[in-house]
Amino acid sequence: MDTIIETHGLRKRFPGHEALRGIDLQVPAGTVFGLLGHNGAGKTTTVRILATLLRADGGQARVAGHDVASDPLSARRHIGLAGQYAAVDGQLTGRENLVLLGRLTRLSPRDARARAVELLAQFDLTAAADRLAGMYSGGMRRRLDLACCLVHRPSVLFLDEPSAGLDPASRQLLWAEIRAQVDAGTTVLLTTQYLEEADQLADRIAVLAAGEVVAEGTPDQLKRDVGGEWLEVSLATPADLPYAWSVLAPLRPKDRDAAEGRLSVPLSDGMSTVAAAAVALRDAGLEIADFAIRRPSLDDVYFSLTGPTSQGAQL
């Protein structure tokens, strides 16, 4: 598969702190790549360099085959950018915003108007097309913002915290629209602080902390790398928990929850641990409500990689 976004040793220093300390990324065309990290990790700086808004101090970045530092104008023909806040002109109507961007991306007046009508329909804004964007609700502004960066059908879409400040319903709509774009062949690079969002949307994720990529892979790989899987056993009768614990003692169970009648067994030995636990519980005659293999969530991945200080910063 072709690599459409590529960075090597990307560095950026701001007065007083080093924002990026050598970022290497490869994003295959037609996929969703998630940059996950807390505030100040370097996500926005990375996106701004890739979107030609900021110049790196070191390293290279290529987007759609164009070096963003030496040939930003060519790179810009292929990118769409939605920043952290909806960058729409509140003194223009939704339709005028879209026509404006159509004209600036070299569509003829007629094509720009036709494209605006198309996007207004696609983003469910037709009824509000001729109202000033300044009067739109937050969700509508976000949708218009996303429509604006799709006017010239970019092959690479940068979304910086796309669902920040959206209600759950608008977020679902946004996710559906992002998936539709990817199905149509667009590559999406999104930053997010929401682990759920990265898990839902991204094919691959890079976890950023203090300007460095601390982990990269598919959501599943990251979850596997960070901690082993475990077996979670819930008993039909919570009072049986001490007995179950003693039955499973050879397998070294770790956590128990007396109120729920639940205990966990690390899968140190993979499937044989599962088999041994199942046999031991059956032989003991214990009634089991739930017996399942669990894997760490992305939250676990995130906190184990970025450390307790960043966890504190999240709160």
Binding site: L53, R76, R77, G83, A87, L101
Partner: peptide, 13 residues
């Protein structure tokens, strides 16, 4: 302030 300059700068203008 409202990000429009960023948007214009990300276009080939």
């Amino acid at each position: 302030r409202n990000g429009l300059v960023d948007r214009f700068r990300s276009l080939p203008v």
